[in-house]
Design a binder for these strands. Structure first.
Lengths: 270, 270
DNA sequence: TTTTTCAATACGGTTTTCCGTAAAAATTAC
DNA sequence: GTAATTTTTACGGAAAACCGTATTGAAAAA
């Protein structure tokens, strides 16, 4: 009973939603693109040891091309690409069977829907599944997603070795990450560390998220009460659900339920 | 009076939200990445006329690299890159002054926030501003955004020459688009045409969007009524606002206001 | 065991939303 | 011009959400 308290917590950066701007100011000068393109020529001379066999799981062909090029410039010979999660999983399996295992996976989180019916629907699932079968596999997440919720969930899970945001310095950061991870270090760019270190953070448990989801799915509070009661979820009284919503609104600074749902959507809680 | 009816309409694909999947099934085989990378070698022999001076406005360095490479492979000599909207605008101005105008702009829609304070906040604004000063400028939009609302707003505006989604075939489509646009044609990939041609489409006027926005900002219906009355927005009676919300819920298949807001967020109406 | 504490529940009154009906105003058709 | 249709507004009862208070119950502390 009362087990909801021990469940996964979500980190929510409240300041981010109110301002709509990142808080941690970066002082690094933006690298212009030419420099990024030049990575190749500069590092070909680099004869250090490096990953042998790398798999890129990324649906956007453009990003796939850029990452492949970066890996090549780092002297990595065997580079496999896939645009689907299921295929990524199978490739890892096959590489293992062929006695030529994948050393490093660089993987996106969100994959666009397609005509294909995928069993593994996103990068996160792929990571959980792979880590179960290959606990030693190094994984670098490479995603546009920069919400603290997502980053901390993955980073704190200890299942990944680096989290790189696709942004203006993405390739630069990715390069650094690959080198660090090869040397058995974990890597998180400074800007992301700042994002996670922020104060204005509220913890939200599964139970609350559940209520928000149901509310956004059109359930009334009364219906949530009935549903919870029926399925044995606890607490399930109308008063308790009312109270949770009231607390959530207070935490988020929302005045009405519609606003609460709107904010929860912005924060990617639901 | 009643001028809200003549305002911009938003196209909403209702089926997309209920299923969470694209409707138009694509039968094209997915091109594997190697092929995409090989564009370069295959097309270097192509000596046809091509754009002379192209500007890429794209915040992600990875995509920037890939697009630059594609342009190079098409024999385009002068390629400028920028990761900021303001800079893109200035570059166009400067190129004009230097008597070496930009022939083609390939531009993203969403740009991540930065420490820089930008006047032009997104690609769409950039396009409006540029088209005012350079009506003849060719523009290809290159974005991950694939919601019918966004696509049709830009496509129907007649301000752009092509809309390409960053997806599994993005580079392939972009290449085709460049060639077509050079020949004074407009170009929309088949998959996107299908997206726009769908039936389950509801038109939503500014007025409705306004109500949804206010609701998601925490206004009660009563408060919306007062606000509209004060500012002279018409209709503004409680009953009318109630009715609009009722109709919206019916159109969207939502049961409650929170669900309505949730769906509107998913559909990127607000 | 008893006490303390805190979360869950119950309840009642108020506000907000919901929904039907109907009158008034505006638009369109004739 | 009038008639027909649609839209806006008004009103009132019902349902849902809101909010404070009080009670119950379970775990933790004494």
């Amino acid at each position: 009973m009362l087990d909801f308290q021990q469940k996964l917590k979500f980190l929510v950066n409240l300041r981010q939603i109110s301002l709509g701007k990142p808080v941690g100011i970066q002082f690094k000068r933006t690298k212009i693109l030419r420099q990024a393109s030049n990575i190749e020529s500069r590092s070909l001379s680099n004869n250090k040891l490096m990953f042998k066999h790398v798999l890129i799981a990324e649906d956007l062909d453009s990003v796939n091309i850029a990452v492949t090029q970066l890996l090549g410039s780092l002297g990595i010979k065997e580079i496999e690409n896939t645009q689907y999660c299921d295929q990524a999983f199978l490739r890892c399996k096959k590489a293992e069977l062929d006695n030529n295992p994948i050393d490093l996976l660089i993987c996106d989180l969100s994959f666009k829907q397609d005509f294909r019916q995928e069993k593994i629907e996103n990068g996160e699932e792929l990571i959980w599944k792979l880590k179960k079968d290959f606990p030693a596999l190094k994984i670098i997440v490479h995603s546009v997603e920069d919400h603290p919720t997502t980053i901390s969930r993955l980073w704190d899970s200890e299942k990944i070795d680096a989290y790189i945001c696709k942004d203006r310095n993405g390739m630069q950061n990715l390069k650094e990450a690959i080198v660090k991870v090869y040397n058995d270090e974990k890597f998180l760019p400074k800007s992301l560390k700042d994002t996670l270190k922020q104060d204005n953070i509220v913890q939200i448990a599964d139970y609350e998220v559940r209520i928000l989801k149901l509310l956004s799915d059109g359930y009334t509070q009364e219906e949530i009460h009935v549903k919870f009661k029926k399925e044995g979820t606890y607490p399930h009284s109308k008063s308790s659900i009312e109270k949770r919503l009231k607390d959530l609104k207070e935490d988020f600074g929302a005045r009405t339920n519609p606003q609460l749902i709107s904010m929860a959507k912005d924060l990617k809680i639901i």
